[in-house]
Computed example of a mutant assay.
Amino acid sequence: MPIDRAVPTIEAQFVRLDDRFDGIDGDFVVERIHTGARKSEGPVWFPAGRYLVWSDIPNSRMLRWDETTGAVGVFREDSGYANGNTIDRQGRLITCEQGNRRVTRTEHDGSITVLADTFDGRPLNSPNDVVVRHDGTIWFTDPPYGIAGGYEGNAAEQEQDGQYVFRLDPSTGDLTVVADDFTRPNGLAFSPDEQRIYVADTRQNPSHIRAFDVLADGTLDGGAIHATCDHGRFDGLRVDTEGRIWAAAWDGVHCFAPDGDLIGKLLVPEPVANLAFGGPKRNLLFITAGRSVYCLRVTFNGALYPLTAVRE
């Protein structure tokens, strides 16, 4: 990150709760690289351009931060109340548009392709968060937050029978329900080897993360509760190269060992909605929280997916 610009900072507060958190820390300060949004969400890092894109949901816009200059500008106005974002194997932006009730892909020329907006002949609820697997399939959650009122979308009746986790094959357009027993499915992330997927159920009491095994045919097995939230509710998830799960919560980012034990936290002064790893080493941690976006360089690395090489 540039060091010759004045950026508001706060002290980095890593809280160790287990010996397995030893050595997990980073910069002494957390930089606040932007504030003034209504609700920051869905950060995604673009390595080729060295910039971060995220959603400001109630303002129905997406913003862009340039690492080389520190400048923040509008990436897209009238974003369809965009929430979660990711990139595919070709470096294209994949977006969950809550207001438009669809998942889209932004092509390299800037045009937008609709990937999914219906299931079983009926509109989706309001796609929330999204990840891409090495085979190019797109996995997303579909709770009804964007149709519950006019603040984060457009009020409408729910037409799906449930709140599903979907798998989309963009090469065929096939959309499949892979999990159908969630109350409010939200953030999701694959393990580093992509043999497991973790999905947050925000509205359960307590809010928790469930773990599924990903079978060879793309279906899921298991689904037991893997971790629970001790402060507010879970939202977005990310996984590092050691298989640790980093989960957005109301007091900051919670770190869970691969076995689901809470081993530490990074405290943030605003409720955290989501996070992303960036930079050449994926050791810049970006945190969307309330009105702001925070960043710090850390001593661990985000898992790399979607993979850039086909697995045998």
Rank of each mutant, 00 (worst) to 15 (best):
P8N: 07
I10R: 02
R16Y: 00
D18R: 06
G23V: 09
G23I: 08
G23Y: 00
D27V: 01
D27K: 02
V30W: 00
E31S: 14
R32F: 03
K39L: 14
K39W: 13
E41R: 07
G42N: 10
P43R: 05
R50E: 15
L52W: 05
M62C: 15
W65I: 00
G70Q: 05
G70F: 02
V72Q: 05
R76M: 15
E77V: 08
D78T: 12
D88N: 15
Q90M: 11
Q90T: 14
Q90K: 13
L93H: 13
C96H: 03
C96A: 13
C96K: 02
C96T: 06
Q98N: 13
H108T: 15
S111E: 12
V114Y: 00
A116K: 02
D120G: 14
D120K: 09
G121C: 09
R122M: 12
S126M: 02
P127Q: 08
N128V: 09
D129W: 03
V131C: 11
V132M: 09
I138Y: 07
I138Q: 05
W139S: 00
F140Y: 15
T141H: 02
Y145W: 10
G149C: 06
G153P: 04
N154K: 12
A155W: 02
Q160A: 11
G162V: 01
V165F: 05
F166N: 02
L168H: 06
D169Y: 01
P170W: 01
S171V: 06
T172D: 08
F182Q: 09
R184H: 12
G187W: 01
A189N: 05
A189F: 03
F190I: 08
S191M: 07
P192A: 07
P192L: 06
D193A: 12
E194R: 04
E194Q: 15
T202F: 01
R203T: 12
R203L: 13
P206E: 04
P206R: 02
H208I: 01
F212C: 06
L215T: 14
D217R: 05
I225Q: 11
A227P: 10
T228G: 03
D230M: 08
H231C: 14
T241L: 12
A247Q: 05
D251C: 10
V253T: 11
F256T: 00
A257Y: 08
P258M: 08
I263G: 03
V268N: 04
E270Y: 10
E270F: 08
V272Q: 09
A273V: 02
L275K: 03
A289V: 08
A289I: 08
G290Y: 07
V293F: 03
Y294E: 09
L296Y: 09
V310E: 14
